[in-house]
């Protein structure tokens, strides 16, 4: 079994095939940006992009991403700098404690890939399942709008 993780092909260890993708990322690939929040697909802290779709990695078995392209927060920036969504997050000082922000950003990236110029209702709908205990929602919406303008 293998999958593409942030542009590079990787094997899925057989003994980890039944584990949630969330645990595979740090334990086998050293990627700690995707967070455990609730473990049951409620809070969105573990959001990654699988074949272009934002999904909860805590309820995604590792084996189910065989052959898929998985993108995590670590795979957004490139040699030219931050992804426009990351830069917008910085420009508007979105993060507070930061724990949920990787999931928020990945949901925003998936939204903008699908809908380059979303309205506020579409932003709210796309990020409805990403909870932020610090309450940064207003800045998140503003940052998505800014990223859409910059893209």
């Amino acid at each position: 079994m293998s999958f593409v993780l942030n542009g590079k092909s990787n094997a899925i260890p057989a003994e980890w095939a039944d584990e949630p993708l969330l645990y595979l990322l740090p334990e086998k690939f050293g990627l700690v940006g995707t967070k455990f929040g609730c473990g049951v697909g409620i809070c969105g802290a573990c959001t990654v992009i699988i074949d272009g779709v934002a999904q909860w990695s805590c309820i995604t078995p590792a084996a189910s991403v065989e052959g898929a392209e998985v993108r995590t927060i670590e795979g957004l920036a490139d040699a030219d700098g931050l992804h426009p969504v990351q830069q917008a997050w910085l420009d508007l000082a979105v993060p507070q404690c930061g724990y949920c922000q990787a999931g928020q950003i990945m949901s925003a990236v998936a939204l903008l890939d699908e809908t380059p110029n979303p309205n506020d209702a579409e932003i709210d709908d796309a990020l409805n399942d990403n909870l932020c205990r610090c309450g940064t929602y207003q800045r998140i919406r503003d940052a998505v709008n800014r990223a859409a303008g910059d893209a």
Binding site: P26, L31, V32, G33, T34, K35, F36, T72, I73, E74, L76, A77, L82, Q86, W89, L90, A93, P95, G98, Y99, Q101, A102, I105
Partner: peptide, 18 residues
């Protein structure tokens, strides 16, 4: 600029669970 902002938006910070 938020002190740890760049680290947060790139997934770098280590929380206890990490």
């Amino acid at each position: 600029e938020i002190s740890h902002g760049h680290a947060i938006v790139t997934g770098a910070p280590l929380y206890a669970a990490d």
